[in-house]
Computed example of a mutant assay.
Amino acid sequence: MAKPRRWLEWEAAQARDWIAVPQATDDKYSRGVLGVRTGSTAYPGAAVLGVEAASRTGVGMVRYLGPKRVSSLVLQRRPEVVTADGRVQAWLLGSGMDAAARSDEETARLRKALKQGLPTVVDAGALDLVGGTAGPTVITPHFRELAGLLGRSGQTVTADQIAGDPGEWAVRASSALGCTVLLKGSVTHIASPSGIRLTVSGAPAWLATAGSGDVLAGILGALLATHSARIEADADALAALTATAAFVHAAAAHRASAGGPLVALDVAEAVPATLSALLA
């Protein structure tokens, strides 16, 4: 895709081209397998929400590889999820984790996934490991997380400064970290190292709720898994898929809200109907 140097608003006309529709010859493996290392004993719901959203975004299989108690909760909600290790086409890492409380064993598992060279979503409690990525990578910070991440790379900036000019800081972060950045906010900014700059606007204010980011990460992880071959052929596909995830997330929130309050699980449950309407 072209590399706009000005910000381009990503809308339905662009997003629908990045939804993988299965063909009669597809099976669960060719439709994409997403590996998920998310959640913790302190925040198990993040894993449930991310897996729920990924499962509803068209991925062929989700492999959840996390703590035993969290796996049990994931399976209670989504019994079709596979909890055995195996081949995957993309990774979702870090949602519902706390880097400060992460065990050495879990850190080693995250590093191993990051070094596989697969398309990867790095969220929340794995953001501190972003320098060790070997494949196409999207990070999904909010303002405070990005300030901390840039601080570790030697740039002094506050969350308030990022909030004052989120587009500029998304671009700076993408350049400094060498990955695609999805910066959360009332307007989502997506910036890639190659110069792509995309925005997604119009999400309902009700979407500012606990677990919303976990749902977004799940949607994005699924899109990367279903388009892993396309990403391998064209690195710029990563930014388009990231913007599409943000668009689907916002559209599903509108559908779930219908003008009123919502919770994160409502958004995940609204994804299939949202994709159906988008493709129609």
Rank of each mutant, 00 (worst) to 15 (best):
P67E: 11
A24F: 11
V157L: 10
E168G: 10
G202K: 06
S192P: 01
L220E: 05
H189M: 00
T137P: 00
P67L: 06
R152H: 02
E11Q: 15
A240E: 13
A53Q: 00
G178P: 15
V88Y: 03
A191N: 07
I162Q: 04
A12Q: 11
A237T: 14
V82G: 05
L220R: 05
V48P: 03
L265A: 13
T180N: 01
K28G: 13
G213R: 13
L223Y: 11
S174R: 01
A124S: 11
L238W: 06
R6D: 13
A270P: 15
S186E: 14
G221Q: 10
R78F: 01
G178A: 07
A54S: 05
A46Q: 02
A13V: 10
G148R: 03
A191V: 05
G66L: 03
L262S: 08
V74C: 00
D128Y: 06
A256L: 12
S228H: 15
W10A: 00
P166E: 12
P141Y: 09
A229V: 13
A217V: 13
G167N: 01
E232C: 05
A270D: 09
L238F: 08
A270F: 09
H189C: 04
Y64S: 15
L73G: 02
G185K: 02
F143K: 00
T180L: 03
G151N: 03
L265I: 11
D17Y: 06
V187W: 02
R255T: 15
D98F: 09
A268P: 01
A100P: 01
D266Q: 07
L127F: 09
L275S: 11
W169G: 05
T188G: 07
L177R: 02
G178T: 02
A240I: 02
G117I: 07
E9S: 13
G213F: 03
T242V: 15
T188K: 03
V48W: 01
K112P: 00
A217G: 15
R172V: 02
A205P: 11
G35F: 08
A47L: 04
A264K: 01
R37A: 08
S228I: 06
M1C: 14
P79G: 10
R197Y: 04
A210C: 13
D17S: 14
V271Q: 06
V187Y: 01
G218V: 07
G164P: 06
A134G: 08
A24C: 09
T274K: 07
A250K: 03
D123S: 12
R109L: 15
A126V: 01
L238C: 06
M61Y: 12
A108C: 07
R69L: 14
G151R: 05
A256H: 13
R69D: 15
M61G: 09
T83A: 08
A191P: 13
V215N: 11
H142I: 11
V121H: 05
A251Y: 14
Q116H: 09
R152A: 08
A235E: 15
V59C: 07
G148T: 01
A253T: 09
V215Y: 12
V121T: 09
L75H: 00
T140F: 10
R197F: 12
V200S: 00
S71T: 15
S228E: 12
P261L: 12
Q89I: 03
D214K: 06
T274P: 12
V248H: 05
E269M: 04
T140L: 09
V181E: 05
V82K: 00
G259F: 09
C179V: 15
L149M: 09
L177V: 09
R77M: 04
Q76K: 10
W10V: 02
D27T: 12
S153Y: 05
D234W: 10
T209N: 12
A273Q: 14
